[in-house]
Each structure stands twice: as structure tokens, then as C-alpha cells.
């Protein structure tokens, strides 16, 4: 049974990859996804965040910026620069450094409008020399987002679009997250440890899920899942289905 399901899932994965390549009109393998560490956020297909794609992050408080900066820091581990396009002027270097994002590697583009933010993001995604491009826009039309997604696919640069506006129904991004702060935990010495509530709202070839995470205090800075939230959608694993069938 298990060997059968394994071979079936392997076949499915192979087929998915083939379709993906046909969709993109190229034969090269997509770059390896970004692993979140600890296998905690395994709901993503391929075991991590797809590189060379656009990801959408909803949220407007410090947690959303923190999560985006943390992702950018992971993506920039190879030493390439990161472009951050936004309208505000309040990003703070020491705070970003604490999340692992080296401020010396950061290029800030202070745009005057959402249109300029999206234009700067597209320029960054097309240039191909960056590790990641972050952009903050209140609104992004599906067309603009689609352009970003295509630019990201073509260059292999990962795009992160932070949106503070209302959730829109359609966005061509590969994943959509909602990030919010949540009550801190306490470490073994009694000092608070900040936590984020991550909701994976949409994921191409994957299922929505949500977690409460905190950053591990070791050098890796990985995210550690504190709790799988109970209000996740019902998505029983293959084994559970089989068990149910047997009992039934």
C-alpha cells in the first residue's frame, strides 16, 4: 500500500514538474526552493518557498515587515543584494540586521507612488543580479502582479509583494500569506520571545494552512513552529484516509 502510494505520488510530482515546464515554455529546472528549516512549514510543495516566483504577503504592522525581511535574509544568504521598494522612509538598519538581513546589502528605492513601486520591483526582478526584491504597495492590479510574476520566472529572482490593502480575489502570485503579530512566548529565562501568526492563504499546488512561529535563538535563525493552529482546513493525510477506510 505504502509503496504503491509512494510511486503514485512520485509519478504525480514528475507530471506536475513536466506541466510546470510546459507552462513556462522552457526545459531548465526551476531553482531549488527556500527551505524554512526544521521541516515545519512542509505544506509548501517542494518543501519550501519557490524561488524565482512572486509571493504576496498581506499585513501592515511590524510583523509583516519582519517576516519579509526574514525571508529576504534567507534568500540573500548567497551574498547578492536585496532591493526594497517602498514609499515610506522608516526602515531601520539595526532592526533588519537583527533579523539576519545585512543592511549593507540592501538597496532602498523610495518611490512616490504605487505605480513607481511596481515599476522599480519589475526593474529589479528583470535585472537578475538580486537575491530578492521586496515591494510595498497598497494596491497592485492583477496585470501588474502578473508582470512581476513573469519577470521573476524569467530571471530566477524571488519577489515579495507586501500589501496593506484589502485582500483581492485574484493575484497571480505563487503563494499568498497573511502575517500578524501575536502574543509573545517566554523563553526558559523568562524573557519574551516574539511570535508571528503565519497564514498561508493560497498556494499553487498546495493547501492553505496556518501556524504560530517564533525565531529559534540559535545561529541559524530558523522559524520554529510553536503551534499548528486548530482552525486549519480539513486536509487529512493519506494514511489517515486509509485508516478511516479500514475501520469503515
Amino acid at each position: 500500500m505504502s509503496s504503491l502510494s509512494l510511486s503514485r505520488s512520485q509519478a504525480l510530482t514528475a507530471l506536475r514538474e513536466q506541466i510546470h515546464r510546459l507552462e513556462q515554455g522552457r526545459t531548465a529546472c526551476p531553482p531549488a526552493p527556500l527551505a524554512f528549516g526544521a521541516g515545519a512549514l512542509a505544506a509548501l510543495p517542494g518543501g519550501g518557498l519557490a524561488r524565482g516566483a512572486l509571493h504576496e504577503i498581506l499585513g501592515s504592522d511590524g510583523a509583516a515587515h519582519g517576516f519579509a525581511a526574514w525571508l529576504a535574509a534567507r534568500l540573500a544568504e548567497d551574498g547578492r543584494p536585496v532591493l526594497w521598494c517602498r514609499r515610506g522612509r522608516d526602515l531601520y538598519g539595526p532592526g533588519l540586521a537583527a533579523l539576519g538581513l545585512d543592511p549593507a546589502r540592501l538597496i532602498l528605492a523610495r518611490a512616490g507612488s504605487d505605480v513607481d513601486v511596481l515599476w522599480a520591483m519589475e526593474e529589479g526582478l528583470r535585472s537578475g543580479c538580486l537575491a530578492a526584491v521586496l515591494g510595498e504597495a497598497e494596491k497592485a492590479s492583477p496585470t501588474a502582479a502578473r508582470r512581476l510574476q513573469l519577470a521573476a520566472e524569467a530571471s530566477g529572482v524571488t519577489g515579495l509583494l507586501l500589501r496593506s490593502g484589502a485582500e483581492t480575489s485574484s493575484c497571480p502570485a505563487v503563494t499568498r500569506w497573511r502575517v500578524a503579530a501575536t502574543a509573545s512566548g517566554v523563553d526558559r529565562y523568562g524573557s519574551p520571545r516574539p511570535r508571528w501568526r503565519l497564514e498561508l492563504l493560497r498556494c499553487r499546488h498546495g493547501l492553505p494552512a496556518s501556524w504560530i512561529v517564533e525565531r529559534s535563538d540559535d545561529a541559524t535563525g530558523h522559524l520554529v513552529v510553536v503551534a499548528d493552529l486548530l482552525d486549519r482546513p480539513a486536509a487529512p493525510a493519506a494514511g489517515e484516509v486509509a485508516r478511516l477506510r479500514r475501520t469503515g
Binding site: L91, Y92, G95, A97
Partner: peptide
């Protein structure tokens, strides 16, 4: 590089 402070610092100031 901006040295990581010993005390926590905000991400936006």
C-alpha cells in the same frame, strides 16, 4: 555592516 545590537531594535523607526 551595521553591527547587530545587543539590545533588540525595531525593524521600522
Amino acid at each position: 555592516a551595521i553591527p547587530g545590537p545587543r539590545q533588540p531594535r525595531p525593524v521600522r523607526l
